[in-house]
């Protein structure tokens, strides 16, 4: 978006809407690709969901997921798509903050910064389990 034009709320909202849709599309394609691959290799016993064991660290920590996705592990690729999905609203909040800054609405830059901090805390604070 050109910075020279003062963005109206609505123009900016349309941009944010497109951002969200693109993020979901990319996430869905990654999940679909990983999923097809996972299903094509799924010959053994079905994964069991009746008793909760918790997803192992390779598929539940950021490090584990990135590591697995680089190695082309199908389940890690699905989790990578889910991470992209979770990151999509976070990106929206980040861009909203830039939008408010362009409008010089410092009160809302502050409000948005609080929301962003809470989201990043949730994603990256490893003590919350």
């Amino acid at each position: 978006m050109p910075a020279a034009i003062k963005p109206t709320d609505q123009q900016f909202e349309i941009f944010l809407g497109k951002l969200l849709r693109t993020g979901v599309l990319i996430a869905a394609l990654i999940v679909l690709a990983g999923g097809m691959w996972f299903l094509s290799e799924a010959h053994g016993a079905r994964r069991e969901y009746k008793t909760f064991r918790g997803v192992p660290a390779e598929l539940s920590s950021l490090q584990g997921i990135f590591h697995g996705a680089v190695e082309w592990e199908p389940l890690a690729v699905i989790q990578l798509g889910i991470l992209v999905l979770i990151a999509t609203p976070v990106a929206r909040v980040l861009f909203s903050m830039l939008g408010f800054a362009l409008e010089r609405d410092w009160m809302y830059v502050g409000v948005t910064a609080i929301v962003l901090a809470l989201l990043l805390y949730s994603l990256f604070n490893h003590s919350t389990r």
Partner: peptide
Amino acid sequence: GVTAAASAGIYLRRGYIDPG
């Protein structure tokens, strides 16, 4: 979406989000 993303990070780490 923002609200759900806030708890999704925690659930992912807790191992609640199974890819299958």
